[in-house]
Design a protein around this nucleic acid. Sequence first.
DNA 1: GATGAATGAGGATTCATTCAT
DNA 2: AATGAATGAATCCTCATTCAT
Lengths: 222, 222, 222, 222
Amino acid sequence: MAGKTEEKKPGKRERTRHQLIEAAIRVFAERGIGGSPIQTIANEAGLANGTFYNHFTNKQELIFAVAGSLMDTVADQIAEAVATLDDPAEWVAVALRHFNAKAREDPVWATVTVRLGASASEVSERIRTNMTRDLEEGIARGRFKVPTRQAAADAVLGSGLMGLLSVSTGRAGPEHASHMAAMALRSLGIHAAEADQIAHRPLPPISEMGQAGTSGRANSKG
Amino acid sequence: MAGKTEEKKPGKRERTRHQLIEAAIRVFAERGIGGSPIQTIANEAGLANGTFYNHFTNKQELIFAVAGSLMDTVADQIAEAVATLDDPAEWVAVALRHFNAKAREDPVWATVTVRLGASASEVSERIRTNMTRDLEEGIARGRFKVPTRQAAADAVLGSGLMGLLSVSTGRAGPEHASHMAAMALRSLGIHAAEADQIAHRPLPPISEMGQAGTSGRANSKG
Amino acid sequence: MAGKTEEKKPGKRERTRHQLIEAAIRVFAERGIGGSPIQTIANEAGLANGTFYNHFTNKQELIFAVAGSLMDTVADQIAEAVATLDDPAEWVAVALRHFNAKAREDPVWATVTVRLGASASEVSERIRTNMTRDLEEGIARGRFKVPTRQAAADAVLGSGLMGLLSVSTGRAGPEHASHMAAMALRSLGIHAAEADQIAHRPLPPISEMGQAGTSGRANSKG
Amino acid sequence: MAGKTEEKKPGKRERTRHQLIEAAIRVFAERGIGGSPIQTIANEAGLANGTFYNHFTNKQELIFAVAGSLMDTVADQIAEAVATLDDPAEWVAVALRHFNAKAREDPVWATVTVRLGASASEVSERIRTNMTRDLEEGIARGRFKVPTRQAAADAVLGSGLMGLLSVSTGRAGPEHASHMAAMALRSLGIHAAEADQIAHRPLPPISEMGQAGTSGRANSKG
DNA sequence: GATGAATGAGGATTCATTCAT
DNA sequence: AATGAATGAATCCTCATTCAT
């Protein structure tokens, strides 16, 4: 149990798994999930088809992993950006704007996230969980006036998701994110003028850490 | 069992087509679109698989027909309900609430609508078009104060969609629809008190016309 | 319910199923079960691979059907031949000799039957059942003197099976079947001289009816 | 348990090979030969899949080794037990009874032996060879009266095999082995009374030597 | 020798679609 | 129009085997 008892290759397995997820994201974006054979994904990752099954039991598992990876990536980045701020209203605004910014920077991410939305709603729970927590804190502090915590979450998340769609279909102008944030804040009971002001404050930066999110996920195959 | 048992004339063809669409909705709800073979759908409709191709050229056409049927059902009902009202704010509130009510009444409808999201986005455009028209009128009349027409549409539609999801996953309480409507109105610049009031007015009833929506659609085979 | 309510094609389905079983028997004999892809079997039957799955859910089901068909064919023929005789001793001798004769006439049958033996012992139960019935009758009539019905069945069936193996590996001489029958009768308590005599009587003929046995079997796919 | 815990020297290689064979027997018994991937067998042996190929060139070789091990185990034990006796009739009876006893003591052995039948008939030849030798001696001494050496071998081996099957399917009663032996002797021309008497004599014991049989076999990999 | 990731040919299975009846 | 058997391309998945460490 001392020393290098178990670590032959530093995460070779882990890395291959990532290659597959990354490849899947690219292929999904281009051809859709249903139109992406395992073979194609494996090849895109520079691997043989059989290798896929050393890392995932089936396609469904890959889809979940992809969805998870996608969501976790932003969720973590957003959580980090938000951590420096005090005002719940700003948390929400920053989260929405970062979510949107991510979509702009990485259209592939946006496309896949949107396509995955319904199929993998269990996974997007992570985003929902984070957001709900933030909203509750805001409600508790009297910053937000909303009929229900549930309704608030739906309104904010719905805005975020629909904004994503607008970005990925090219409907969104340059300030779309801020506008969406402002409207979301208004729906949470923030006055229009203040909402606009908060929604336009400079965005705290996020770290560029690679594939942050996926690291902690369980590896279903031994 | 007497005389013309099968009622040859009045749109027998039409009816068979409908059987297939209805069967597809049920099967899609249960197994997802990708997991629903034509064979299964045809059997659910009490028909042989070959019969399917007397009514649709391919599966994709069925999917569009299903999406169309789904959307038209509500879109028409909503349009009818809204037609009696004068205030754009009320249009929006009523539309959102009816959309949500439909989801409650017909969980299968809700499930399939959500699942269809990506596969048939062209169709959901119809909802967007209607909603955008209403919002524009409201903006023109000075009833809504929004940064952008686009942002407004996203905020409202996002709420609607997310509300649908909450219903179909059982997260939504009895007043969820009204709450969502109120928040949407706030985001459009209506004051909180008024928004709440509008969102709780009695809902204008909708007619119970059977499968209204699909009627006008072209029949590609024939 | 009167007239030709249900019989479009006179057993088209049934016939295709048979083609597949017959083709499988040929292919199995040549390449072994494990070495016979569905594709090859279907092609041998003059059908496309997909057609196979209209008649069997998987390969295992085909194997059972083949084993059943094989066993039933002889079992029926033997039962017919035996029906004309009165002496239980002769039943057993005739059964063993016919079993062996079949192996000589149809080496493919022999090969497949042997190879199938273990994999499909459930199916060969039919042979065992018939034989056990005959033995019991012989015991009841005091014709056989055996320690156990079970032991008797094992001895006779074991002889039959092993004889089959000898035939299919070319070890068996022309009178092998009669010799085996004689020895089997001895083990059942018949005196040597009489056993030999019975085992050499002329063999009652069997009808050449095509694929008799399989007809009654259930069709697992609708 | 003291000192050199791992015992490097005395055939560590040999032992690993054995672990694999033993593991294979267990896995074969449970899942059949075709359904037992190397990976599974290696894991069952507590080894990585790659290790397998340090000991066998391919799967077929393992199957032969398993069959050999299976047969040798009994063949050697039987040979030993028989060596103390003078009467060929007793040789046959003891052999059959030991064969059957082994099946009872080690159901896994029985199952795999039966399942192996077809896949490794070359190996079961060993049993046939031994048995044929014994029968010839008996014939030469005038102890057996049989139509053919071949027929005699088939009758005895068939009984033995079928008895094995009866044991492994639970059809065999406690005295089944003796009954089978008695019937086999009768078929060889021994009178019923004597046959019964011989078949019920106390069984000479066999040594409990571990994995005796496999030891002499060549090791195809260096 | 042991390890376990990678390989890729082989084969099973699905299912949209065609077509003769 | 309805039927349902047949089709075969597309894809999933398995697993014996290789190989770098």
